[in-house]
Structure formats: structure tokens, C-alpha cells
Design a binder for these strands. Sequence first.
DNA 1: TTGTCTATCCGAAACGTTTCGGAAAAAAGC
DNA 2: GCTTTTTTCCGAAACGTTTCGGATAGACAA
Lengths: 351, 351
Amino acid sequence: MTITKSRPRLKDLSIALGLSVTTVSRALGGHDDVSRATQARVQAKARELGYVPSRAGRMLVSGATRSVCLVVPAYDPTFIDPFLGAFVTGLGEGLAQNDVDLFIATVSRGQCELDVIRGIINTGRADAVVITRTERDDPRVRFLIDQNIPFVSHGRVEDEQRPYAWYDSDGERAFELATELLIDLGHRRFAYLGVKDPLSFVDYRRSGVEKALSRAGLAFPASHQITTSRRDRDGVLVACHSVLDLDPRPTAVLAVIDELALCLLTVAAERDVLIPEELSVIGFDNLPVSAYAKPALSTFDHQPGDSAARVALMLANQIDRPDASKETVLAPAVFTPRGSHGRAADNQRQI
Amino acid sequence: MTITKSRPRLKDLSIALGLSVTTVSRALGGHDDVSRATQARVQAKARELGYVPSRAGRMLVSGATRSVCLVVPAYDPTFIDPFLGAFVTGLGEGLAQNDVDLFIATVSRGQCELDVIRGIINTGRADAVVITRTERDDPRVRFLIDQNIPFVSHGRVEDEQRPYAWYDSDGERAFELATELLIDLGHRRFAYLGVKDPLSFVDYRRSGVEKALSRAGLAFPASHQITTSRRDRDGVLVACHSVLDLDPRPTAVLAVIDELALCLLTVAAERDVLIPEELSVIGFDNLPVSAYAKPALSTFDHQPGDSAARVALMLANQIDRPDASKETVLAPAVFTPRGSHGRAADNQRQI
DNA sequence: TTGTCTATCCGAAACGTTTCGGAAAAAAGC
DNA sequence: GCTTTTTTCCGAAACGTTTCGGATAGACAA
């Protein structure tokens, strides 16, 4: 009178049904070399006994794991994306719907990210990988294409000619639109607050500003493009002050990330620069706290949930149809206008 | 002249060495029924050929997966912890050092978290699970103990009598200390800004304030404990105003999370309440933006990286020694004094 | 010399699944 | 009624690992 604690196996089903293991397996697989009647009978029994196929067994015979790996660098805490949590959640959610598991690999200090990826694939721990925060000329993308490893990149790299699957939110278009909007509001003197990191989204956003300004015949001198390092807290403050020190002072600033925009807001408050009356500020990210800033920050939203869901779908496609053409998705970032931007003051408009 | 693309198996090693598969396996396992010389020879060859054992093969025979699952609810975006990214990263990092994989399961809207956990264990996808954001009386903890599933809880629940492994940062002690510090700075009128969610850390932090105040013989009436829902942006604003509307106005406020504290800071600025001269504010979380607030927010740091590393270790222990006693860790949160708190104004002190 | 003990190695089975090739039975064609 | 085709099922092998229970050889004791 032993209690069978462990869940049923194919063999248990076959015994219970008086069929062979083969037939049970094929019935559950929906193959047509087993009669409809038997298929139904097997499936009913499987449901009844709560049968779930063993992943290990399947992996062994198929060689595939039905799981993807998100590779996240852990060597630099500032690299930890504020959206990582939301992204991971959305990714897991989307993958689960396609019966794919998500697993996380980290790259420690001193480890080579490429080696980590190679290890994941070689040890057969994942069928595909996701990378985020692509760099200007990202060695990971090159490597993954070279090695013919299925992957989806969150963020695109400009230089890569070969096709690969990527998802990116269109920061270039976003900042182009924001700049146009500000021009329409009468602004003529712009500054851009950027970061030094060689991440590809940084380039795109800056370029959006440049495009809109040049189209409007407005100057965008290097002196008005102030960049700093996120890592360096003092540097961030210095950069914000530099923006306000420009003479004549710009009336509109595009900040590449909310974190910088928020800092600029507080520095401006310290220096009694009125926002948005004297200075319009638009950021990018829509951090949760941005809504609570004073004034609330106008910014762009990534819709991290949607993007993760889309990436999940792309990954499932990569796994299930490895030879399908590589999807590329350029998603619009949605403008979230709040209180930090407005019409240029008239006196400034006439200058 | 075929190129062997796939990595070597135990069998390949055995052929290359002229040994049996068994001996190779046992040699790599370091068993003493194979001579030292052979062990060395096998290990050298394994290194040379780049042998890595197949996880599938191991899983099949051992029944264990050497992976743990982080269960994260995806049904409510506000549930997504701002530290989730850092936590996931640290966890992955720590687990990898113990040769354990981290995999992520999400609970979708309409799914029962308990069912998800059961599924993970039943389908043998993980040997242990991690849960976060424990609730006051958490059904997950009860369930996991009942089912004898190895787990570590990030956050503890007060009511559970049976031993289980948990890690928590000591919010109670933290707010107790913060309150004492403020009392020493001359503050006598306190308010507490809380959230309604039934999360266990909420209770502990509030209780810390209460303890310190009662020890100092100061009142802590319900009217001065203002709670709101994080989900409800307007509600948060209303709560912040309510704190400032208290008459006489408190001189010190403890906010259960930085998000609320930051909101209070902006509301106070709007209403020309000087911080810290007229009002001291201390939060908890040390969000990245908290350093950029005006004034910079005094708060407590979780040290999410350290906590994740510790939890990873605890998990590895649970897997490797399932019968070991359950570790519990109560980690101090480190006070991060900045500009949002200070000495109580003299005139108020005398009231 | 014979038997026992130890050191070292190996064959076979097992874990759970899938697929290949074949076999039996039923249906169809003549 | 006989052959051919189709339908439906099954045995065996394979995936990569580990362990159990031997097996072989040499060392040792009597």
C-alpha cells in the first residue's frame, strides 16, 4: 500500500491504458499513426492522472531545452537597468505562454560576456539568448551571428549589415518629435544632456535632436551637447550646472534619460530657474518617480511590458522556426507630456 | 573527414582514453574506486577536449535539476519591485558560483501563485523556489512548508511558527533607530506615511517607529499614521497633503518607502514647507533617484546585491543539504543620511 | 600452493522520452 | 479467395549520465 508520490510517467500511463509506451507518446503528440479514438482515450487518462512530460527526458532525446537565457552583466551595478525587473517579468510571462522557460545568466566581474554566452550554448542550457543594452558596435551581436546562435537583441546596432532579430524602441524618432514639438512651442536655443556610455540608444536619441534641429535650420553646436558618466554622481551635477551656465541659456533641454532630467530639475530649482517657464525639460524612460517630480517630468515611455512580450514572441519564433527570416521591430516610444515643458517665454523667443 | 561540431560526451572521452564510460564518470566524480593516476589522466583529457557534463543526462538520472526558480507575480505591474532587477542579477550571480541555475516563473493574471509553484515542482523544473515580498500572513509560506518544498523567502512572516529559511532586512530596527535619532535631534511630533498593501515589511517598519516613540513616552496616534495605496497616484498625493495638514504640523516624518518620501518632498516644496528646517523626512529603499532629490533624501539602503548573494547561498544550502536546519538572516539596513533630516527648529522644540 | 583481501576497472541497467522500422490486423482491390 | 494497401499498434534503440554489482588482477597471509 505504497503511495506513489511522484507524478506519473509515460510508462504509468501505458500500463493504466494497456497500451505501449510508444503509442501513448505518439497519441499525446497527436501523430496520425494512432487512431482518433485511442488518442482521445490517452489524452483523457493523461489529464486524469495529471501527466506532464519530463523535461529531462525530452531534452535528452531532442537536444533542445525549450528555454532561453537572458544574459545580464553583473559586474557593474550601474549597468543594472531600472527596467530589468519589468523586462524579466514580461519576458517570463510571454515565454511561458509559448511553453518556453526563461533562465538568467550573469556575467561576473572579470568574466568575458562572450565566454558566458558560449558556455550557455555549449552546455546546452538554452536554445536561444537575449541580450539587452546593445552597444554602438556590439561584439556580442557579431559573435552571436558568427556562431549562428539564435538570439534576440533588445536594442539594435547600426553597423551590423547581416540580418538578425532585434527589438528597439525608436528613441531617434521620439527625440525628433520632441524637438519639433519644442520648436513649435517657440524654442530656439536647445541643449542636449547625454551620457558617455557607448550604448546604442544614446546615439539614436542624440541623433533625433540633431535631425530635427538641422531640418529647422537651428544650430546644435558641440558646446550645447553636454555628456557625463552615469557612474559619477558629481559629474552628473556638474553637467546639469553646465547646461544652465550656457550663455545665452537654452530654453529647452532634451535629456537622454530621466535620471539626468530629474537631476537637472533639482539643480534648476536650486538656482531658481523656473520650469517650465524659463526652461523646458524632456526626458526619456518614464521612471516611476518621474511622475512625482516637481514639476512632473515630460518624458517618453518604453512600455517595458509590451516590449518584453514582443521579444518573448520573437524568441519563441527563433526557437520554433530557426530558419525563418529575422524579425526586426522598431517600436514607437509614447510621449508622456507632463509639466516640465511648455511654450518658450516671449522675450526669449524674439532673441 | 567530418567535423565533430558537438561537444564531447563521456563516451568520446572513454574512447579517447581507452577506458570504460563508467570509469571516466567515476574518475571525474573523484570517487576512490579509480586510481589517482587514472583520475588525473581523465581530468586532463576532459579539460583538453572541453568536456562539460550534459545537464539533461544528469537530471534524468538524479531527478534533480540544480536550478532554483524565482516566482514573480506579473499580474500587477505595481507589484514589480524596483529592486527586482538588482535582486535577479545578484541571485543569478550567487547561484552560478554554486553551479545552480536561476530560472524565472511568472504568475499571470488569473493564475493562482500556489498552482504555479506546485507546477514548477511537479514538473521538476526546479529543486527549490524563492519568493519575495512576503505578506502579513503569507499563504505561500504555509503552502511551501506544508508541501515540504525547499525554499527561501525574501521577507519573513510573523505568524509562522514552523522553521523555514528566510532573509529579511531589519526594517523594524532601522525605523526604530531613525526615530531615536530624530528624537535626539529634538523632534517630538512625528508622523508616519505608510502603504496599505499587506506586505510584511510594512508592518515591521511601522512597528519600529511605534516602539521608539513609546519608549520615549511620545504619542503615536492613529491620526498621525497616514496610509495610502501605491497604485493610486492621487491617493499618494492626498496622503502627503494630509501629513502637512496635521495641526500642529509634525516636524518629522518616516515614510515606509522612498517613493512616498520623495512625493512628500515635492508636495512640501509646493507648499513652501522647508526641508529639513521645518520638516525632517526619512525614507527607506535608497532608490537611485533619491540621491538626486532636493534635498537629497535620507534613507536606508537594502544592499540588494548583498542580500541576493546571501539568499543565493541559502538556496544552494537548501539544495545540497535538504535536511540542514533552516537558516534565518535578519540583515541590518544601512542608514544613508543625506539632506532631508535635521535638528528640530527651536521654537517647535519648546512646544 | 591456496585462499583471502584490496585496488582498480567494467558491463549492464536505469532515468523518461522520442523515433525508426516493422508487424499484425483490417480494409480495399481484383 | 487472394493479394495489396492502409490502419493501428508495438519493440527496440537512442539520447548522456550515474550507480550497482560484479570481475580481474595482484598483494598478502596461511
